[in-house]
Design a protein around this nucleic acid. Structure first.
Lengths: 242, 242
DNA sequence: CGCGTAATTGAGTCGAGTCAATACTTGTGG
DNA sequence: CCACAAGTATTGACTCGACTCAATTACGCG
């Protein structure tokens, strides 16, 4: 279970030791990508499937104006580009937010693993469908919710996802984002993010400093965000849905 | 090629007559869903894969406040829920915007078709990946772009997608949306959409009445929107990329 | 022709952006 | 071990895009 991907998939499927081992075996080639550099750039034609093992990365689109929008965060156990080998080129960049440990998985090896294994195929489809559900939630964040709600929702999302891969320590977890980066994710200016964070602190919902976030009042935070974890489609009975 | 899905997939793969016929054969059971009603509701566990053959539908999320956000539009040739059979339940609703002709495809039949056909499997993966790319573009729309740019971009998107399935007549195509619905898609109020549309008309970029949109100046519209069609990943050499 | 929905217009307000200055943190080199 | 540099966070004043509320007008359809 030490492999981040196995850990994540175990939220929806019971993996045998052999399956876990096979997944670990995929992650033979591992590289460290320094913070603020691209794991994959726009226009790239990736030869490998990239899997984040450690650290935080972000999908980002940059406009001519120079402004950038993040469209997703990737953490331990998340694929950068599962199946993009189908497409000609990346239509967005994936940038390391912190130093990242990334596995480079040859596409054919992944195919070989899933071809005869319906359970793993389903599990990977689950991760793809959840990624899509998260994208829709981000549209609601930027389109419908106020800055206060959106930031709260993003925190809830990352808290939940961090729990899925076992990187929450009590009520504290890594949120290694500057206020500028929180703004790029929610569609707001860093100045306004600053004010929103102050309100969230004043409301007794969170503490946040040094890239570590502590949830002071989970119910209150989820209430403020309008957060419902159903969109992750964790099987009922999982510890996370209790 | 009369089948909408075949028509769409032919943008990235050359289908044989047999393959086109197989796809048509999938669409045996067809139902008409009246405008303003759900094709699939939040919480549903669909037994079938739903394919839109005719009309417009929208993915929508509704908050407790009663406000709703569209996260995608579905037109001819678009799947409502390819592979959601993997998930327990729909985390959002799909609502018919106009009357829709919808094919109900038994999941196993679709699997049988793709199982031995790598080309079709790749083509369906392409459609999934493009759907994701469109979601990311919507995040940019709601997060980074002004209302003016966002509406222009949405028009460009739907124009391009309509072209892909052959429902553009010269420079005119169906955009059967009220200003309220345009607002639900871009995260703005109908009142503001109204003002934005007036500016787009005044700028000589579009005409829009009676649910029909005419592009008066495509270059100008794409310029205003910051629209780049690369994210559809149409193979170069296709008529649409000329 | 008349109802109901959709579109339009105007006036006033507010959330969020801009601009600009100040304070903190953290890592680095002397 | 301290001082500076660079990035990050914070604060204040002002502006503006977009929302709200509230009519009024234009359609589309039976």
């Amino acid at each position: 279970m030490s492999n981040p991907l196995s850990r994540k998939l175990s939220n929806i499927a019971s993996l045998t030791d052999e399956e876990s081992q096979s997944i670990s075996d995929l992650c033979e080639r591992i590289e460290v990508v320094p913070a603020k550099t691209d794991i994959i750039s726009e226009g790239d034609r990736p030869d490998y499937v990239h899997l984040v093992l450690e650290g935080w990365a972000a999908r980002s689109k940059v406009l001519e104006s120079g402004k950038r929008q993040f469209t997703a965060f990737l953490i331990r156990g998340d694929f950068c580009d599962l199946h993009v080998t189908i497409l000609a080129r990346m239509d967005h960049a994936i940038t390391a937010v912190t130093n990242c440990k990334v596995a480079y998985i040859p596409s054919p090896e992944l195919e070989r693993l899933t071809l005869g294994n319906a359970k793993l195929t389903r599990a990977l489809w689950w991760s793809t469908l959840v990624d899509e559900a998260v994208l829709r939630e981000w549209i609601v964040n930027t389109g419908l919710r106020s800055a206060y709600e959106a930031v709260a929702h993003l925190i809830c999302e990352m808290h939940f996802r961090s729990q899925m891969v076992g990187i929450v320590d009590g009520d504290t977890f890594d949120l290694p984002l500057t206020q500028e980066e929180l703004g790029a994710a929610t569609g707001h200016t860093p100045v306004h993010i600053n004010r929103v964070l102050q309100k969230l602190r004043a409301a007794g919902l969170i503490d946040f400093r040094g890239g570590r976030l502590t949830v002071r009042d989970l119910d209150g935070l989820e209430e403020a965000a309008g957060f419902e974890s159903e969109y992750f489609h964790i099987r009922s009975g999982s510890p996370l849905t209790s």
